[in-house]
Design a protein around this nucleic acid. Structure first.
Lengths: 212, 212
DNA sequence: TTGATATGACTCTCGGGTAAATTACCACGC
DNA sequence: GCGTGGTAATTTACCCGAGAGTCATATCAA
């Protein structure tokens, strides 16, 4: 079995750090847009313009590659959350400042948001821990706000607080995802829209549910 | 290659309609709890106490089986939505009546809710159409309510209306999913919780975002 | 005997992961 | 300047397991 010539083998000579960043970017985009399960390692390699074993030499496994994507995206998002949380705003205003920050951070990399809500990823302890760590910062901040809101109304039920925190996280996610699906809307416009919507809801003098 | 005996082959004689219902129930539960991708046809067959080829003889393919699950679940849910929508309530009260109906309908089959939000299913035109058809009824009803809320505040932006409808759908889903994760909470209790939470939010006299 | 019900054992494809070989570059002695 | 060996970068070709889907055959009731 005489080996046939292998075009381009070794000819690139791209430094490790550069190649690694290239692969990571391709992977983040692919995973974010199509989901873990729908993306094969061959896809990532092809998108990055290289062969599959090279991807493995850099990231070890598909799960390892996804983990690197999570860390990359998580650092971007969590750092932003921490920054806006430290800005001293409270109540609805803090929620809106947080949204504004996220919109600006994601502006040119919108797809990374979905990495953290990818139901098709394997539920391994390693990945679970990373997702948990990063999402905790976001949900914690939200829970503070919603708990405060309930307390103002005299509600001290811990399950109510937990459920409302989940609802708020879902609202946050819905706003971001809606924005992901409307690429023509800028971060600035989306911030203004969020202000209008949240104000409309909390100020709504609609027919409240009468008892019974 | 003398064929060995096949224990139980053909010995059951279960009527088609009965077997079909058994398989469907197993499949709905498995798909709903673990997701399309994580469930194999062998799993379904084993759970239903039969062999894989029998599942194929009834539903043709994995996608066909999932389609049947969607129709089964969709009929339950959509019928319920239509019924509560016709009850004549408006505003927040209608939202709560709708939630109450869904909670009661799902009480003994909570997992079927997730079938419609399963990101691991194949995105074929056939399945897309079915999901679209069933979810349309739910989101449409929601959009009516949110549009009305915006209009009361003088907001006529169609994109705002679309985004708020998405947010409301997300809130609805978040409440149901929170409930799925708290099996000890009854439908009745969950309805009461929803009333408290939505009332708290819409009636919140919190620091509104000042201009600028 | 016939037809409905049922199954063990198989094929085939896809995708994660690997082994071994190949190319290019670089440092070094002459 | 120029062979030369070491090493990093990269490839082709393969293995392997899982799971979708099929076929020929077996059992049983009427």
């Amino acid at each position: 079995m005489t080996s046939r010539p292998r075009p381009n083998a070794g000819s690139k000579g791209v430094p490790r750090a550069v190649r690694e960043a290239e692969i990571l970017e391709s992977a983040c985009r692919a995973f974010g847009e199509h989901g873990y399960a729908a993306v094969s390692m061959t896809d990532v390699a092809h998108d990055a313009g290289i062969s599959k074993p090279l991807v493995y030499s850099y990231f070890g496994s598909k799960e390892g590659l996804f983990e690197a994507c999570l860390r990359h995206a998580g650092d971007l998002i969590a750092d932003d959350i921490d920054r806006t949380a430290a800005s001293g705003h409270v109540g609805l205003e803090r929620a809106l400042v947080t949204l504004e920050g996220i919109f600006k951070t994601l502006e040119e990399r919108r797809w990374i948001w979905r990495l953290f809500f990818d139901a098709t990823r394997p539920a391994t302890p390693a990945l679970d821990a990373i997702v948990e760590r990063y999402t905790a910062r976001l949900t914690e901040r939200g829970a503070e706000g919603t708990a405060e809101m309930l307390a103002r109304g005299g509600n001290r039920d811990p399950l109510d607080a937990d459920a409302l925190a989940a609802v708020w996280a879902s609202v946050f996610d819905a706003l971001v995802v809606w924005w992901l699906n409307h690429p023509e809307v800028t971060a600035e416009e989306m911030t203004a829209r969020s202000v209008r919507l949240l104000s409309a809801v909390t100020a709504d003098p609609s027919p409240a549910p009468s008892a019974g």
